[in-house]
Amino acid sequence: MAGIVEIAKKSGVSPATVSRALRGLHHVNEKTRKKIVDAAQALDYPIRPDLLPRNESSRTNTIGVIAPFLSRWYFSQSVAGVEQALREAGMDLLLYNFAQIDARQRVFQQKKLVGKVDGLIVMSLRPTDKEFNQILGLGIPVALLGGIDDRCSCVSIDDVKAAEEATQYLIDMGHTKIGIVVGQRELAFNFEVAIQRKTGFLNAHKRNKIEFNPAYELTADFDNHTAELAMDEFLGRKDLPTAIFCESDEMAFGVIKSIRKKGLRVPEDISVIGFDDHEFSQILGLTTVAQPPRFLGQLAASQILAAIEKPDSELGKISVPTTLVIRESVAKLN
């Protein structure tokens, strides 16, 4: 991120003048201050809202939502929940959707957001320190959906605990050879859910003194297609687990399809458990961890709306419980 020196060069003044102007000190004439603020905005430097032009600091009645991979079930459901809550409050939604890291860099630029939204909801993407400085510098409420951070309001589930409970159910059903389909952590986006759910999976093994076989770990992209391909290759091995924990229902769908293509049965040959409670999970009889993404979106929107009305209110931290939904995809071993 650019600093005082870069702003000074762009605006043609000294760094000391830039510092005084951006701190709101009075001994800087307004023409010079405007030139400095314009330069700072062009360089994506966080600016105090009271220094922005009046038309940019006024209410827009619009809330911004930053969400990756909108085609995925969790994100589309969460956005639907946000939209419903905002519609009922007479507010509009401005969606920033992206699936590439360069798009993320553009979205988090302050100049893309300033004056356009009264609040911001970030889904499943823990902002970097640089990004946090940029969005907090807007002087608007920020909520993180699907993560926890002390700098803003948060709505989340306990992914570690939920995955641990799902794995414990498999163990209680007599399974000790358990595989896992891990979602790509996608380091460029800094997703944490994949590693959190794997941590819960391993915690259950450790608590029950069961050694996990690393050869039973598959990797996919939180979708059914890549999970199906990974499972196709995996089923060519001689040593197979009796059950598989999938970190999302969409990956579970691909796993089940692959198992059936091989002429095997779920759960008689291989048991499968998912995570999400996607609408199709009931149709397939998939045992899964149910989470309420639409409700999570509504809660995040409510946090933002409350913070707009009472800017000095305490930052909210809400953890929503999950539920293990038992259907027909897990067999009990003798």
Results as ranks from 00 to 15, higher is better:
residue 70 L to F: 11
residue 164 E to L: 10
residue 89 A to R: 10
residue 334 N to R: 02
residue 171 I to S: 03
residue 50 D to H: 09
residue 243 A to S: 07
residue 192 E to F: 02
residue 290 A to C: 04
residue 72 R to D: 10
residue 128 T to I: 14
residue 214 P to I: 08
residue 179 G to C: 12
residue 114 V to K: 15
residue 9 K to S: 14
residue 266 V to G: 07
residue 142 V to F: 10
residue 177 K to L: 12
residue 130 K to C: 14
residue 329 S to G: 10
residue 269 D to Y: 01
residue 256 I to G: 13
residue 214 P to E: 08
residue 16 A to D: 11
residue 261 K to F: 08
residue 225 H to Y: 14
residue 299 L to I: 09
residue 12 G to P: 00
residue 153 S to R: 00
residue 131 E to K: 06
residue 248 S to L: 05
residue 100 Q to H: 14
residue 80 A to Q: 14
residue 217 E to K: 04
residue 125 L to I: 15
residue 109 Q to C: 14
residue 195 I to E: 15
residue 210 I to E: 03
residue 117 V to A: 07
residue 92 D to V: 10
residue 129 D to N: 14
residue 289 V to Q: 04
residue 62 T to Q: 07
residue 170 L to E: 12
residue 330 V to Q: 00
residue 256 I to P: 13
residue 87 R to Q: 03
residue 28 V to N: 05
residue 18 V to Y: 07
residue 192 E to C: 09
residue 273 I to Q: 00
residue 15 P to E: 11
residue 81 G to N: 01
residue 119 G to F: 08
residue 39 A to E: 02
residue 75 F to T: 04
residue 66 I to S: 03
residue 216 Y to F: 13
residue 62 T to P: 00
residue 69 F to H: 10
residue 54 R to V: 06
residue 250 E to A: 09
residue 244 I to H: 09
residue 241 P to Y: 06
residue 39 A to V: 02
residue 108 F to S: 03
residue 67 A to M: 14
residue 213 N to P: 08
residue 47 I to Q: 03
residue 151 R to Y: 12
residue 93 L to S: 09
residue 312 D to P: 06
residue 329 S to A: 12
residue 108 F to C: 08
residue 123 M to A: 15
residue 1 M to N: 11
residue 256 I to C: 14
residue 102 D to Y: 13
residue 145 L to W: 11
residue 87 R to Y: 12
residue 70 L to G: 05
residue 201 F to Q: 05
residue 24 G to Q: 01
residue 212 F to R: 04
residue 244 I to V: 15
residue 109 Q to F: 10
